[in-house]
Design a protein around this nucleic acid. Structure first.
Length: 493
RNA sequence: GCCGCCUUAGCUCAGUUGGUUAGAGCGCUGGUUUGUGGAACCAGAGGUCCUCCGUUCAAACCGGAGAGGCGGUACCA
């Protein structure tokens, strides 16, 4: 940026990582893979099929904006193709789907029910649980005009979150509709786009700032803890009250909320239509068996994406996230979605009603990681290399184990036995196999069950006794090695 | 983007109101134990004290700028 730090970095300074692009290791990768497998499994069960698109889309296909100066827009990562056209990394999985539908035309039947999982990129400020590269797992129904399709997305989303381990009270899916919001905006006479936007943004913060904070934002403005002043929407007291009454209409049950809303939503056409949408969704949710605790109607839900045209839903993690450092972290939204009836029409002019739900895989995984709920490492069986001058024995043993379908490696490092045991321990190896001169002479191998060894060692008091005991260790003839190792691995599950 | 706080060993942190060779715990490496991780004891190796510029006889410490981190706020298709 400035001209004085143009000196090239050297040495360790070179090894930097851009913020928000996480390095992921064994534990996290497997946790994420498992989440993806579980969630897509639910989507498949509900009758969705796989469809994936590429990482880049033309910038104008992704959104309404056009290239201005150097970059099309902050918020996305964009580069120019060799023909100078702007391409952007996708910021979600929905906009590329709309492009695909427009392009594929009649070659896909309607309704088209698809799921997809993959990384998306947003050029925003990262934080704990907030990344610039992160995974989403989406399901969408294209060509579905009825609100029961939205209800299906919501109920399926709740099922997916339960499948990844969320229990009653640990998450909630809050449902609203844009049309109800439009009705409220109309009823308070919010005409300008700026004012409407300011009101929606204020509403969206109800859960975080509370009624008084939102009231400030709806009115004159709000001074936050850091001393920063946020300009308000400029509504009068009566209007602020009306909007707040609407936003706080949420009640314990969906039926109660709907009853409250019918009073607070005003008489506009949009408001009535919105109420009808939510009523239809509520009926369908009953039929789908979605528990009241999992899915609530909450008129303060807005969601940022501009392409939503009707119902919107947001899945929030309620479970307290406390790290091993004792700090609590606010993870917030772990998924959401909504109806986007006009997204395909941008390309073809043909209105294609569609609705979708997305699970924030990276958020979920980092919430689990912060809580210390990482999956147990399941490393390979490690064959120790005791005679470093002739590693062939270790290679041979490892090959036997692999041919039998077991995950195994011969030690490749340069350390002594103690170091090799430490290595196996750190890798999460279920067992090590040792073949030294004693074993070669006797035609046997020594197998150590590391898990059992650890367990037995707990009962041992003195260091000498520990050295003597060789806990969890057995010696078997070489031709029984594979089965003995297999028993140990399987016993550990 | 704006505001505040922070940056010393691999990690968590001490540190002298500016004064020689910058410390601890954990971890790591080696040994006690030709060949035994998670236990014990002994020893050892790790540092441009975030970077650059300035003040000073002297800067890890003071001043300025920058980078990175954390938190808040804004933005978030």
């Amino acid at each position: 940026m400035s001209d004085k730090d143009t000196q090239p970095l050297t040495g360790k300074d070179l090894a930097r990582k851009p913020r928000g692009f996480p390095d992921k290791r064994e534990g996290l990768i497997h946790a994420q893979a498992k989440l993806v497998e579980t969630v897509t499994g639910i989507y498949r069960k509900w009758g969705f099929e796989a469809l994936e698109t590429g990482a880049f889309e033309y910038a104008d296909a992704l959104g309404k904006f056009l290239p201005d100066d150097d970059r099309p827009n902050a918020g996305v990562f964009a580069i120019q193709d060799d023909d100078e056209q702007w391409m952007s990394l996708r910021y979600d999985l929905t906009a590329p789907l709309a492009r695909f539908i427009a392009e594929a035309g009649q070659t896909v039947g309607r309704p088209f029910r698809r799921y997809a999982a993959g990384p998306v990129w947003r050029n925003e400020k990262p934080g704990p649980g907030r990344f610039r590269e992160f995974w989403q797992c989406d399901a969408d129904t294209v060509g579905a005009p009825g609100f029961h399709a939205d209800a299906e997305m919501i109920a399926m989303g709740a099922e997916a979150l339960r499948a990844v381990g969320m229990e009653t009270g640990e998450f909630v899916i809050r449902v609203n509709t844009r049309r109800l919001l439009n009705g409220v905006l109309e009823s308070v006479g919010a005409a300008s786009a700026d004012t409407r936007l300011a009101i929606l943004r204020a509403l969206d913060k109800l859960d975080r700032l509370g009624a008084s904070g939102v009231a400030d934002l709806l009115g004159k403005g709000r001074l936050d803890d850091s001393g920063d002043f946020t300009k308000g929407a400029g509504l009068g007291d009566a209007e602020v009250k009306a909007v707040l009454a609407f936003a706080e209409a949420g009640a314990k049950t969906r039926a109660e909320t709907l009853a409250n809303l019918s009073k607070a939503a005003g008489n506009s056409e949009e408001g009535k239509a919105g109420l009808a949408e939510l009523e239809a969704i509520a009926v369908a949710l009953e039929a789908l068996g979605a528990p009241e605790g999992d899915v609530v109607i909450d008129p303060s839900v807005v969601r940022g994406l501009e392409y939503y045209t009707g119902p919107v839903y947001e899945a929030e993690l309620l479970r307290e996230v406390t790290g091993e450092d004792g700090k609590t972290y606010r993870i917030g939204s772990i998924g959401g979605g909504g109806r986007y009836d006009d997204l395909v029409a941008r390309f073809t002019g043909e209105t294609v009603p569609a609705t979708g739900f997305s699970v924030g895989i990276s958020r979920l995984a980092s919430a689990l990681a912060i809580m210390g709920e990482t999956v147990k490492l399941d490393g390979p069986v490690v064959v120790l290399n005791l005679d470093k001058d002739s590693p062939a024995v270790a290679l041979e043993i490892a090959t036997m184990l692999r041919r039998a379908g077991l995950r195994a490696e011969a030690y490749m490092g340069g350390s002594g036995m103690k170091g090799q045991m430490k290595y196996a321990d750190r890798r999460g190896a279920p067992a090590v196999v040792m073949v030294g001169s004693n074993e070669i002479e006797a035609g046997t191998v020594t197998i150590k069950d590391l898990e059992m060894g650890a367990m037995k060692a707990k009962a041992i008091q003195s260091n000498e006794e520990y050295r003597e005991a060789r806990p969890g260790q057995i010696e078997v003839p070489r031709d029984q090695m594979v089965e003995a190792v297999r028993r140990i691995v399987e016993a550990q599950g």
